[in-house]
Design a protein around this nucleic acid. Structure first.
Length: 906
DNA sequence: GTTCTAGAAC
DNA sequence: GTTCTAGAAC
């Protein structure tokens, strides 16, 4: 086959060519035989980064290519290889024979001149080290409906030299129209698998193309454009004749739409960051461009620049910094070396700019190794962790794998930042846990880019060819001692005495279900050699009678502890890279000497912590600048104390008899303000209301002005209108949600003034929250008598929309016309919805509720629409609602479901 | 919380 | 033209 090149030879022999896999594995990649897809991704990215480091511009890459004399044969190395494996082979890192650099010095451009569209990619740099070639392409088609994008793709897909992945927005959502986000996800996934991608959507203006260009820049993939700039009349004619178009365009509306789109089109320019743009004005141009990409395989590289016939109107926006289009109707691309060089240089600069503007996650505590390589190219932070409690602690593997995968999934949802990754590590190549977890992760559609697997020694991940992991989890013992065996012994040994010393400074013991972060000193071998900056000690439940604190087959408690262990571990990992405070409570701290006791802070630390806390929910001064509805009240003018009771109110339905202790609690804690007083108070609070934490004492309170519409529940709590309520007690009222998001949806509304949101809740509110929960449970039970198929969750929104703390009790069918948008859905099905029992537990354990604030609220819009049963992502609300009506998978999102069985004590 | 509307996408 | 989403206003 013409233009194909011979892959470089292995240094072990001229005839090697990977015929012997065992031999090749010695130098191809240390863990090639067991290397997972994700590991290949990371390695591939590393290689790209190295390539970039040595020559940012395409021009420099071109020079590197020139060192290799023309060679042939690449795809016939293994005739029996499948399509995929053939491409995987082609991207391997090879050591090659010595070459004659002088002879090859100008080879690249000469080759381009002889063969305009392609050139050899086989290359290596001055150090003799081979690089991964830029053979994978992100090709963006630009054209109005009817311009022939689908035909272009068909030809690529059916007979292309490489297996192209077509991303078509019209059918991406299970055959239906999807979103740009989905296209981006699919494209990223394909590119990471080293597959070239063609984007089959109009991409008609800069904004529509921008995200794809950024994706290409982030993944170090060259981004090409083919512009199907055919006359509008021709496009209309074609669109009018087609039937059953994927995008719904038909004869009736084609003309209008195409004309409109045609007017709004903006042709792509190199300044957007494209590596190569091919303009087509006629079918012949399209045919030629199609052929160029059809024959493109991993052994070829199309030259950079702008190609094709351009008219005067079009050329103006296409010019950039002196670059003129290369009209390949007369001369082949790449013949003008200066032009090409300038183009390549500008493209490289633009791509660098794009890359520089991508969001980054800071790498903390880098070692020398990391600063030289990882910090520059791996804008990620990875936690490598072993399966907790399944080895020496003998926890049931099936239960453990479920908890592990669910915990991972929750973490990924809670932390949408793609830079935070998790990697499960097991030393055995035939690990039972690993295979169980892989299977469950696949079933639950867990993001395989952010949750990966590694087989090998957790203390030697990077040095054995795995991805860089800057944080390690250590499944430790309660004494945090170095002894024993397994992962704990291995990590302490690999980290040296530095880890023991650093651990001693932080804590002396650890409770099951908790974790503690220990920074590694720069002198630790684990840091120096593997780039590990932190170890997080985590203690899971023990089911082994030979070990301390055995739970003796109490898997109810065991599962709870294991969930807590993972949650604590992941939370601490995330907190390393965020402003959120670390979870540190369930350990015996060396500075306090007592369990569950927070360390005493000096005045400066108190100030800093207060400042940090403020930052979590949005810094007040910043909010003031933005004109948001938050301000600090100078003194305790309003709401000091704030407790009340509405005397004379009785239970209207009588189903919920308050426990005696609750009645006493209500009377004691909610006295002091009669109705008259409340009315005047309400007027005052129409201006300013408190919400903040601090025990509702009126001091150092940050206060928020609530909009008028947010006060409906508040007013109802203060002045219960029995006609609107299901039940009234001294402490709470129950009512139907005015806009139910499911078949059954009630609110249990606290009547305690000043307690407006979870973040206000403290230990003294536990009894009230328990009372609210019991009311919710009772109402759920009464609904279950009517319809036993219902399943309920009782919980709070992390950030409420309405003033006055209220508990949602909502059936999990979500079959309601009032459930309309993404915020509705995500506020009930993501970790933004906090189970009532978890909140009570958290108050008992920590004295307050964490993870409430603007970040959680913001995530509602950023998160995908994911089915709460099968976790599949749905493209929009109508599709989601149709899906959840049909989905029969068991519920995923809670361990505290209220069902017929649970209310009957089964 | 909701409704209304402009804009994106094809 | 339709469908869907996000933001403003209340």
């Amino acid at each position: 086959m013409e233009n194909e090149v011979e892959l470089p030879k292995c240094k072990y022999g001229a005839q090697c060519y990977r015929k012997n896999a065992e031999h090749l594995s010695q130098f191809y990649h240390p863990s090639d035989s067991e290397e997972t897809y994700e590991e290949r991704v990371v390695r591939s990215k590393r290689s790209h980064a190295e390539l970039n480091q040595q020559g940012a511009g395409s021009q420099e890459r071109g020079k590197e290519f020139s060192h290799i004399p023309e060679q042939k044969q690449s795809s016939n190395l293994n005739p029996s290889a499948t399509e995929d494996s053939r491409f995987e082979e082609a991207e391997g890192e090879w050591e090659i024979d010595e070459y004659d650099g002088e002879n090859a010095a100008n080879c690249e451009y000469d080759e381009v001149a002889q063969e305009p569209s392609t050139s050899s990619y086989a290359h290596h740099n001055s150090s003799g080290r081979n690089q991964t070639p830029d053979a994978v392409v992100l090709l963006i088609l630009v054209g109005v409906p009817g311009s022939g994008k689908s035909t272009f793709c068909s030809k690529l897909m059916s007979s292309g030299a490489q297996p192209w992945i077509r991303i078509c927005q019209d059918i991406i959502a299970n055959g239906k129209r999807g979103t740009k986000k989905q296209c981006l996800r699919e494209a990223e996934s394909a590119l990471l698998r080293r597959r070239s991608v063609v984007i089959d959507r109009c991409n008609i203006d800069i904004k529509q193309r921008q995200d794809f260009l950024e994706l290409a820049a982030r993944l170090r993939v060259n981004c090409h454009a083919v512009v199907l700039n055919l006359p509008a009349s021709l496009c209309i004619q074609r669109a009018s004749h087609r039937v059953a178009h994927e995008g719904g365009l038909n004869a009736g509306n084609a003309s209008q739409i195409i004309n409109r789109v045609f007017r709004s089109r903006r042709l792509p320019s190199l300044s957007e960051g494209f590596f190569r743009i091919t303009l087509c004005r006629t079918d012949a141009d399209v045919e030629k461009a199609t052929e160029e990409y059809r024959v493109l395989d991993h052994s070829k590289l199309l030259g950079a620049g702008l190609f094709g016939p351009v008219n005067k109107k079009e050329i103006r926006p296409l010019q950039l910094a002196g670059i003129t289009a290369i009209d390949d109707s007369n001369s082949p691309p790449g013949t003008n070396k200066e032009e090409l060089a300038r183009t390549q240089s500008v493209v490289a600069a633009k791509q660098q700019i794009l890359k520089d503007h991508l969001p980054r996650v800071g790498v903390i505590g880098t070692s020398q190794h990391m600063s030289s390589v990882d910090e520059q190219q791996e804008e990620t932070n990875t936690l490598a962790f072993p399966s907790i409690s399944t080895a020496d602690f003998q926890f049931d593997h099936y239960k453990a794998s479920t908890i592990l995968v669910e915990s991972v999934s929750e973490f990924l949802l809670k932390n949408p930042n793609a830079g935070l990754k998790l990697m499960l590590v097991d030393i055995g190549s035939k690990s039972h846990m690993l295979s169980l977890v892989k299977k469950k992760a696949t079933e639950l559609n867990v993001d395989s880019y952010r949750f990966t697997f590694f087989t090998g020694d957790i203390t030697k991940i990077r040095s054995s060819g795995g991805p860089p992991c800057n944080v390690l989890a250590n499944a430790t013992n309660w004494r945090l001692k170095a002894g024993g065996g397994g992962v704990n012994a291995a990590i302490f040994k690999a980290a040296g005495p530095e880890l023991e010393e650093a651990t001693r400074k932080v804590a002396t013991t650890l409770l099951p279900g908790s974790s503690i972060v220990v920074p590694l000193s720069p002198s630790s071998p684990l840091r120096k050699e593997e780039g590990v900056t932190h170890v997080i000690h985590v203690l899971g439940p023990n089911m082994n009678p030979q070990r301390p604190n055995c739970l003796a087959d109490d898997y109810v408690e065991g599962c709870k502890i294991l969930r807590n262990a993972y949650a604590s571990l992941f939370e601490n990992f995330a907190s390393l890279f965020q402003t959120k405070p670390m979870v540190v409570d369930n350990c015996k701290r060396v500075d306090t000497g007592s369990t569950n006791q927070k360390p005493k802070l000096n005045a400066f630390q108190v100030l800093m912590q207060a400042s940090k806390r403020k930052g979590e929910v949005g810094d007040i001064s910043l909010k003031r600048e933005k004109g948001e509805k938050v301000r600090v009240i100078e003194d305790s003018i309003t709401c000091s104390g704030g407790d009340h009771t509405e005397s004379g109110i009785t239970q209207t339905h009588g189903q919920a008899n308050l426990p005696s202790e609750m009645n006493s609690i209500s009377r004691e804690s909610m006295n002091g303000h009669g109705p008259k007083n409340l009315l005047s108070r309400e007027n005052a609070e129409a201006k300013v209301h408190d919400i903040r934490a601090g025990g509702l004492q009126g001091r150092d309170k940050v206060e928020r002005k609530w909009d008028k519409w947010t006060l409906a529940l508040y007013k109802l709590a203060l002045h219960p209108d029995e006609s609107k309520l299901l039940q009234v007690t001294d402490a709470a009222v129950v009512l139907y949600d005015l806009y139910p998001k499911a078949k059954k949806h009630v609110l249990v509304l606290s009547r305690k003034q000043g307690l407006d949101a979870l973040e206000d809740a403290r230990q003294e509110h536990i009894a009230l929250l328990e009372h609210m929960h019991s009311l919710g449970e009772k109402w759920a039970a009464s609904f279950l008598k009517e319809d036993s198929s219902l399943v309920f969750r009782a919980g709070y929104h992390s950030v409420p929309s309405m003033k006055q703390l209220h508990l949602h009790v909502v059936s999990q069918d979500f079959d309601s016309a009032c459930l309309k948008n993404k915020k509705h859905w995500n506020s009930f099905t993501t970790p933004f919805f906090r189970d009532s029992l978890d909140i009570i537990d958290e108050l008992k354990t920590h004295g307050r509720v964490d993870n409430c604030g603007e970040r959680a609220e913001k995530a509602l819009q950023e998160l995908e629409l994911r089915c709460h049963r099968c976790r599949s992502i749905q493209p929009n609300m109508p599709r989601l609602k149709a899906h959840i009506l049909a989905c029969t998978q068991p519920l995923f999102n809670s361990t505290h479901l209220i069902t017929v069985d649970s209310v009957n004590g089964v």
